[in-house]
Design a binder for these strands. Structure first.
Length: 485
RNA sequence: GCUCCUAUAGUGUAGUCCGGUUAAGCAUUUUGGCUUCUCAAGCCAAAGACUCGGGUUCAAAUCCCGAUGGGAGCACCA
């Protein structure tokens, strides 16, 4: 059986599937976000269901509007559409209600132990004294968390199982005190639900039927189910997929931030990064990302994806409407005599009708240094779209004589740019940022090249193919970024 | 250390639940050819894999046991 796209879901009814993508607005969106968003959104689409974007914003210390906005921009660029957009923090009152319910039913208690002690007890699978406090005392302490206690003084813990093999189940945190200013709610609340509490409640009340998360959350599944059971709430099906990273391209802010601060990387849109913004600048199309991610499947095996697969998808997308332009690198001069014409019309694409451009010529050209080295005296070469030339090369100066009606078959073909109108641009070539753990000091190559003046008429962001060189994205009038071959 | 997840060609995957129909399909990569006024695209072809060791069975990539490699968790981050 041939399978289109993602594997079938268990217990999925057409029209009734609800999925969600819950990013935390604590950084710029990257390829990993794209994977989670695309998989969840594709499943909703596949079953004619609904898809929710939920900003998971329950840690005021980490979250910022800047990131919130960047995530929205990134998702829009990817072309992902949502039926509902919400914030986890919209439901603070509900979290409190459910939290109190857990305390009332003795499924949760307030713990006032020191952080280190809690950690050690977890490791040693020992309960602490607080776990035996009665409901009355717990309720009193809950009130105190609102004002009297300082951050770190007290937390609400779920009554799991301190002896459990799954360490996540050893009385995990449900609520903690954070005094920081939340990016949308300010100082309205200071008791914040933990990830597990928030996700459990949210997925349940949002009607999420299938939740797909990356593998590092796998151990949380048991806890989320336990919380929901304790509350008598509906449980979504949970499944997991491997994290997506590219070789040598760090995803974590912990690594990227210092690079930016040290000036080793310009910003989150530096084309060497796997952020969505960077991929966009580099010339990768959203559709290519989608196809690429779908081709990865739902495996739980670790993936260190090869960038060239992404490039292959992109090349196929971009080829049909990338204008072909001449560009020369490491330019060498050549003067061609006996040119019978002063202008030549060149098609913008070999097979598709993308128009033509008129190029003025006077016999003085630039060609690429590599080509100049390979052409010998007496040789015949084809100046692409122009005609054949008999080369004279005395070792110092390159010259040539135009041959009318030369046959293009079986002779070297090279691209050229008229000296008079040549437009100089900077070509940026992104390479792998890291070799293992080593920062690659040569990860960004910049070269000065000449291109046809027609380049100036292209829109910014347009993809072009520099003939015999590769696909590049116009970054500005004076700069292009190498996308791939 | 404990627990969980995972293991198919250079790379990424399909197949593994329900053992035989596939001596393993697809994509990428590499190489060769056709086409072409590009070293692109398109078309054709070739190369290349079931981690290891036991067991069950007429039959195992698929089931069981063990080993080994890789990843994750053991946060008042998500």
């Amino acid at each position: 059986m041939e399978r289109e796209g993602l594997p079938e879901l268990k217990n999925a009814e057409h029209g009734k599937v609800i999925t969600r993508f819950p990013p935390e607005p604590n950084g710029y969106p990257h390829i990993g976000h794209a994977k989670a968003a695309i998989i969840n959104s594709e499943y909703a689409k596949m079953y004619g269901g609904k898809f929710i974007l939920r900003m998971d914003d329950t840690n005021p210390e980490a979250e910022r509007m800047e990131y919130h906005a960047a995530i929205k921009v990134g998702l829009e660029w990817l072309g992902i559409e949502f039926d509902t957009v919400k914030n986890t923090s919209d439901d603070m009152e509900l979290f409190y209600e459910k939290g109190i319910e857990l305390i009332d039913s003795n499924m949760a208690y307030i713990c006032t132990c020191k952080r280190e002690d809690i950690s050690q007890n977890r490791r040693e699978r020992r309960a602490c004294k607080c776990s035996t406090d009665d409901i009355v005392k717990n309720k009193k302490n809950w009130e105190k968390m609102n004002k009297k206690f300082k951050p770190g003084d007290a937390i609400v813990r779920f009554r799991g199982d301190m002896k459990a093999d799954n360490a996540v189940m050893r009385d995990p945190v449900l609520f903690r005190i954070i005094d920081g200013k939340h990016y949308t709610l300010g100082e309205k609340y200071r008791i914040w639900p933990s990830y597990d509490m928030a996700v459990a409640i949210e997925d349940s009340i949002d009607g999420v039927t299938h939740a797909f998360r990356s593998k590092e959350f796998e151990l949380r599944k048991e806890l989320i189910n336990a919380i929901l059971d304790a509350l008598n709430m509906r449980k979504p099906a949970q499944d997991f997929f491997s994290r997506l990273e590219f070789k040598g391209m760090p995803i974590s802010k912990r690594i990227i931030k210092p690079l930016i601060e040290e000036g080793k990387v310009s910003w989150y849109d530096d084309p060497r990064l796997p952020t969505l913004e960077a991929l966009r600048r580099r010339g990768i199309k959203p559709e290519a990302i989608k196809k690429f991610i779908m081709s990865l499947g739902l495996t739980k095996a670790n993936t260190l994806a090869p960038f060239d697969t992404l490039e292959a998808f992109n090349r196929k997308l971009v080829d049909a409407n990338s204008i072909r332009l001449h560009m020369v690198n490491n330019a060498k001069k050549i003067t061609v005599k006996n040119l019978p014409i002063s202008t030549v019309e060149i098609p913008n694409h070999p097979v598709n009708d993308l128009g033509k451009r008129r190029v003025e010529i006077d016999g003085d050209f630039y060609i690429s240094g590599d080509d100049a080295q390979n052409i010998k005296n007496g040789m015949q070469v084809r100046l692409l779209n122009l005609g054949n030339v008999n080369i004279t090369n005395d070792g110092i100066e390159l010259g040539g004589e135009f041959i009318e009606n030369g046959d293009a078959k079986d002779i070297p073909k090279i691209q050229w740019v008229p000296q008079k109108t040549a437009h100089k641009i900077k070509m940026i070539i992104p390479k792998t940022l890291f070799n293992g753990d080593e920062f690659n000091e040569d990860s960004l190559e910049e070269i000065e090249v000449y291109t046809e003046p027609h380049y100036l008429q292209l829109k910014e962001g347009e993809e072009v193919q520099f003939v015999r060189y590769g696909y590049c994205r116009k970054d500005s009038q004076n700069q292009a970024i190498f996308t791939h071959k």
